[in-house]
Amino acid sequence: MKNFEYVKPSTMEAVADILQQYGDGAKILNGGTDLLVRMRDNLIKPQVVVDIKGISELRKIEYTEEGLFIGAAVTMNEVICSKIVLEKYRILAQSAHEVGSYQLRNRATIVGNVCNASPSGDTIAPLYVLSAKVKIFNKDGIRLVPIENFILGVRKIDLKSGEIVLGILLPPIKGQNGGSYYKHARRKDVDLATVAVAAFCNEGQWKIAYAAVAPTILRGPKAEEILNSLSEVDENTLIPAMDAATSEVTPISDVRAGKEYRLDMIRISLKRAVLAALELYK
């Protein structure tokens, strides 16, 4: 690992100043579970590493009338154990539980997962179906960006120079709902998703998101429309939605799986995610 400057500011303003000063030469250190691996492999060689864990507001996880705010430095395990998450946004806890190992989840954060913008990031698809917004700080103020607009491509996000993500805002959910995340991987413990599907139903309206089948997480409008049109969703009636799923993804072949297999698995994952969501619907 090449050497660099390490700074640990205590205010957002200070972070913004450093980011503005160094531009691409500055990298945010949060959980570090992605950053350090990339630095070890010399894929990135930052001049300055900005540790944001000293900023207390980033450690907050709180529910207000605006919804649930999860600060940038809140770890996966904190989310998994959060009562409010388990009560109101269970699908997010479930997907966080799929990230890496237990010890990794003690460091890794949801916001880190989002900013990493990997197509297989486990917590991102649930954020899509929960209509999450990314809360971004810059010295002129705060802006809120829907997650779908925030993630632009593989490792590409909508952050301008001097900007930093404060956290994720999940709007309140009213009425009956249930959601589930189904991940298909090669191994049960610690693996990246070969494909994954997040399914969420609120007052009979479905939201579907696919992971690891395109450069970004994708919403599944066709599958959603079909599911919304069904009077009863079950193993048989949802087959057209499974077929639709294959038409709205563009997987590639890589070492984890071939394109054909991913297409097969997106169908099955959709089915399993939807049926599991129904089980939890209340």
């Binding site: 390490y6 640990k8 250190l29 570090g32 579970t33 350090l36 691996v37 590493v49 540790d51 864990k53 395990n77 190992s101 237990y102 010890q103 990794l104 003690n106 460091r107």
Partner: peptide, 13 residues
């Protein structure tokens, strides 16, 4: 009190 991977943390942390 928490298990972590020490290879993925900086010493300064």
């Amino acid at each position: 009190g928490k298990a972590v991977n020490s290879c993925m943390m900086l010493a300064v942390e």
